[in-house]
């Protein structure tokens, strides 16, 4: 059984002057080392969740525990050291005038000695494959590159958890792929826990586990395969079905038998190839 690194217990949150609860009695665990995708339509409460997890907002009811510490006004500074966040807009989170200054910003704030800082900046930029860009100015970078620098800035602080709050939603397809690939590599390399908040189900398909939010509540939780078998229900929730699921469905309707419900594109191609060999 894996260790739980974040626990939400009966958490509710309501913004000022709003009638509806943004989050309503939400409970779940996040396990150490997993890649968890939290998906939901705009307004489903998924971004509120991100804000609660690192104490940008506090829940009115319920409690949140991060790495064994109860999240509160007092513990927030310690907890923020453990959680790094990457936000949606690449242009809003670049604070330095060059790539290396940007990554160093968080380290300076934490009073890391210079020698160590230089080392950490280089290390983390290498991990996101941006070490060739040390002295580049942000406006010379693509959206995907900026987001990778943002990830490096977070990594340099050596958090246990990284939250991507719709970090790919403003990127073009290529940028999106770069960021997702970066996260995947990081996850393999060390036991970083990744929470990606997204409405892109192609991205969520790569996660270990998915939580579907709807109207401020946890609607369903499961592996990508389990979640994607929800099919039309996902569309009703304002989400979409990954391409390979749509494609598999079309093949089934035309009488081709497939072994399981959710197949990645590669798996589907292989399956069709095998079925030809068997015919």
């Amino acid at each position: 059984m894996k260790e739980s690194i974040v626990t939400l217990k009966e958490v509710s949150f309501q913004y000022d002057l709003q009638e509806r609860y943004a989050l309503n009695n939400v409970s779940f665990n996040i396990y150490e080392g997993e890649w968890l995708a939290i998906v939901g339509h705009n307004g489903s409460g998924k971004s509120t969740m991100a804000k609660l997890l690192n104490g940008l907002q506090f829940p009115q009811e319920g409690e949140i525990t991060v790495c064994g510490t109860l999240l509160s006004e007092e513990s927030i500074w310690d907890i923020r050291r453990k959680i790094g966040m990457v936000f949606q807009n690449p242009d809003n989170q670049f604070v330095g005038t060059t790539v290396q200054d940007d990554v160093a910003f968080g380290l300076e704030n934490n009073g890391i000695p210079r020698e160590e800082m230089v080392q950490r900046v280089e290390d983390s930029l290498r991990k996101v494959k941006m070490d060739k860009f040390l002295h580049q100015e942000p406006h010379h970078l693509s959206g995907g590159q900026k987001q990778r620098v943002a990830i490096a800035g977070v990594l340099a602080l050596r958090p246990s958890i990284i939250i991507l709050d719709e970090a790919t939603s403003m990127l073009d397809p290529r940028g999106r792929e770069e960021v997702v690939e970066t996260v995947r590599l990081l996850k393999e390399e060390k036991s970083l826990t990744v929470i990606s908040i997204t409405h892109d189900l192609e991205e969520a398909a790569k996660a270990d586990r998915i939580i579907v939010m709807n109207k401020g509540e946890v609607f369903r939780e499961g592996t990508p395969e389990e979640i994607f078998s929800m099919d039309e229900q996902l569309i009703q929730l304002g989400l979409d079905i990954p391409f390979s699921v749509k494609m598999s469905k079309a093949f089934r309707q035309k009488g081709i038998e497939l072994s399981k419900h959710y197949l990645s594109e590669e798996e589907l191609v292989t399956e069709l190839w095998t079925s030809r060999c068997n015919m």
């Binding site: 391409f243 494609m247 079309a250 093949f251 309707q253 035309k254 191609v269 292989t270 190839w273």
Partner: peptide, 28 residues
């Protein structure tokens, strides 16, 4: 997807299909 499939199967469909429905019919 069509390109991946063609490569794996070592064949070419008559044309490029732009919808899931068309492609699945052609492959079937």
């Amino acid at each position: 997807f069509q390109l991946k499939l063609e490569e794996k199967m070592g064949m070419k469909l008559e044309k490029i299909h732009l919808t899931i429905d068309e492609l699945s019919s052609a492959v079937t």
